[in-house]
Design a protein around this nucleic acid. Structure first.
Lengths: 101, 101
DNA sequence: TACCTATATCACTTTTAGGTAACTTATTGT
DNA sequence: ACAATAAGTTACCTAAAAGTGATATAGGTA
């Protein structure tokens, strides 16, 4: 009858921000070069993009591969843990899509 | 190759805050009296509780029934639109639950 | 030598979300 | 009279998220 423990929070702490779900969503199709990924996300600023992917990396949802070339080349890819969010991310997208109808 | 429209945002705008998903989640089992619902959400303040349910009402996810008695009695219930989030909410909860293992 | 490239960082400001504590309301039972 | 009740509001404050614009890097090419 009192408080109820609810792991929903743990999930929301990982994907409950403005940019994280979008970045993850675009990585569902496979790994992407940094610049390409950033261009896929409308209106994300330079700073927020880097910050977001780095946090996702820290949380183990995304991996970062750096190629030692100039100019720099960096690729981002979902980890296993990140891929396990696929169903959720697609559901969120589908639900929103149905809203607009 | 450029920006990609993505309705994920529409969904996240509705449930992407600290308290909203929790409140919705607890309403999945059926309508609840205001005070009961609030007690189910750990650590939510009085202000945030009211604010959250009212916004959910405005967004059409929750309905509010007021009984004209003293002391007041108010019940909250998911709307059809709110219920349509059930699968998503449960997935978010399940995913978080598996994290803790 | 100057510039271009892709990725990233830094200092700073603005905006939004959330937290705290006191107060309101209208009736019933004491 | 007045305290208790359930739901909600208000003013104020802090903290977290996001935005802006400038700067760094380092090797290849004009």
């Amino acid at each position: 009858m009192g408080e109820v423990y609810c792991p929903l929070n743990l999930t929301m702490n990982l994907i409950g921000t403005k940019w994280r779900p979008l970045v993850l969503f675009h990585l569902l199709e496979g790994s992407l070069r940094s610049g390409i990924l950033q261009k896929k996300v409308p209106n994300i600023s330079n700073k927020m993009f880097t910050q977001t992917v780095r946090e996702l990396e820290k949380d183990g949802l995304v991996s970062r591969k750096v190629f030692p070339v100039v100019p720099p080349k960096v690729e981002y890819e979902l980890t296993i843990k990140g891929k396990s969010l696929e169903k959720i991310l697609r559901s969120l997208d589908t639900w929103g899509r149905e809203l607009s109808n």
